[in-house]
Amino acid sequence: MNEGWLALIQQALSLLFSLDPEVWSIISVSFAVSFAALAITLLPSMVLGFLLAFTRFPGRWLVTNLIQTLQSIPTVVIGLLVYLLLTRMGPLGDLKWLFTQKGMILGQMLICAPVLVAMSQAAFTSVDRRAWETSRTLGAPKLSAIWAVCRELKVPLLLAIVAAFSRILTEIGCSMMVGGNIAGVTRNIPTAIALETSKGDFAQAIALGLVLLVLALILNFALGTLRGKAEPRSH
């Protein structure tokens, strides 16, 4: 049994290090789609988080709770929603994005936006108000003061980005429904792992799983280092 496992891991590593085109095509689809979704969503989500933390308007409570709720919606439900939007009969059917990377990006945007908004709102809410006031009183224009506040919050904001990226890189429900798991086009790491496991081809599934594991390790160690460097603040 142990020898079988070792052989599988050996095969998996060989697939990765021999730059197997199929494995690396899957990895590149995964990263391309998830990076695009994150890049498009990042700024508007952070701005919304900032506004929810610093402004008061009617319905703010409702919006905040709605975003909290959206965080916990299963990705397969978001997949279903995007599928219904993009299907030929759906309101966005003319875009012909179903079973394309664009469709997957749209789905992943809907998955990562609530995480980014909620976590950045929490970060901005926790900020010491004196950071904003000090920056402004020292002559900083509003945008520079916002940047100064973000700089003070770099750890919680990066944590929000990492959490959102992890969620979309590893989600399977939406990618499977909207992307359709088409080899070389929409097959990403989670859908490929599910497929290869069902086929009994564990080596490829393990190789792809290792990529996710290594990425998780790198991100967490990097964040841990950053968090360790950040000095606790006191009066």
Binding site: R130, T134, A148, E152
Partner: peptide, 8 residues
Amino acid sequence: HQHPYLFE
């Protein structure tokens, strides 16, 4: 401020 804010 009474307790000055210093940036990181």
